[in-house]
Amino acid sequence: MKIALNVKRFDPEAGNETRNQQYAIDLPEHSTVLDALIHVREYVDATLALRCSCRSAICGSCAMRVDKQACLACKTKITDIVKEEGQEILVEPMGNMPVIKDLVTDMEVHWSKVRQVTPWLRPTGPEPEREYLVSNDAMMDVAGAMNCIHCGACVSDCPVLEIDKSFIAPAALAKAYRFAGDPRDGTHKERLQMLSETQGGIWDCTRCNMCVEVCPKDVRPMDLIMQLRDKAVAAGVAGGTGKRHGDAFSSSVRRLGRLDEMRLLPESVGIFNAPRLLGELRGAFRMMRVGKLPWKHALPLVSKPIPGIKHVRRLFDQARREEKETKE
């Protein structure tokens, strides 16, 4: 089939400009975007730079943006993208990282965050004589997180990281879950405390679901971050920002039927925590600029409850009653 590629190119030796280059090639129907790029590199334009190795979605080399969304080029079929003949496929490097050349990015952003979560098992207590005895279910639970191949797709497309460079970001937080959920690790509490209290930790995820959508290995980073939050609350280490964030979240929804982003922040970090609040302000302004914080909600006076708020409150009351009953 005829394939039209439009590749965003950058050559550091030729200046700071990026440019788009079109390639028209012919490949079998079942080809992947990676097949197409390799064909270009091998038979059309040897200067095109990209990383790839396994061709089977396991080495994590070939993440890039195809039609504005991060993916593994080797797992993305041409026919997944091209819906009508002649449709161009836009190929760009990943976002949230510096570009080295063409589709090759510097992934140190990601690895520095991985190092931040103490990414190795820390058993405490005596060494077992043989293996640690743990249930298969517990191992399969963390195996889901370990399925991550560090391709960087979720890092590329994470909107929180875009405005807050300190955010540990989905992949490294998934890596954190892999240890915080591993029964062999003896330092769950320290881990959860760090993840809860550190700048850019688990409470900074906005649950936009982007990482879940782009992850090629079904790691579901956001779900793991939510589970880390639950674990932190259960371990009693979410007292600071985290717990308050949850409380502010639900009180806002109960009051207005929606999130009052402007009050969420001060209520989460503590109304008297001036340094942290000031620090967050920059992010808040940036969020406002990109439309993530609707300005009219910034004025508490305009914060009106949604129509039908009483149904929302009824749900809340019902949930509270049931919680109380199960406790009793």
Binding site: W120, L121, P123, E127, P128, E131, Y132, V134, S135, N136, M139, M140, V142, A143, M146, D182, R184
Partner: peptide
């Protein structure tokens, strides 16, 4: 013991 996950 280093941390490799295995089926059980």
């Amino acid at each position: 013991n280093m941390g490799v996950i295995f089926n059980r």
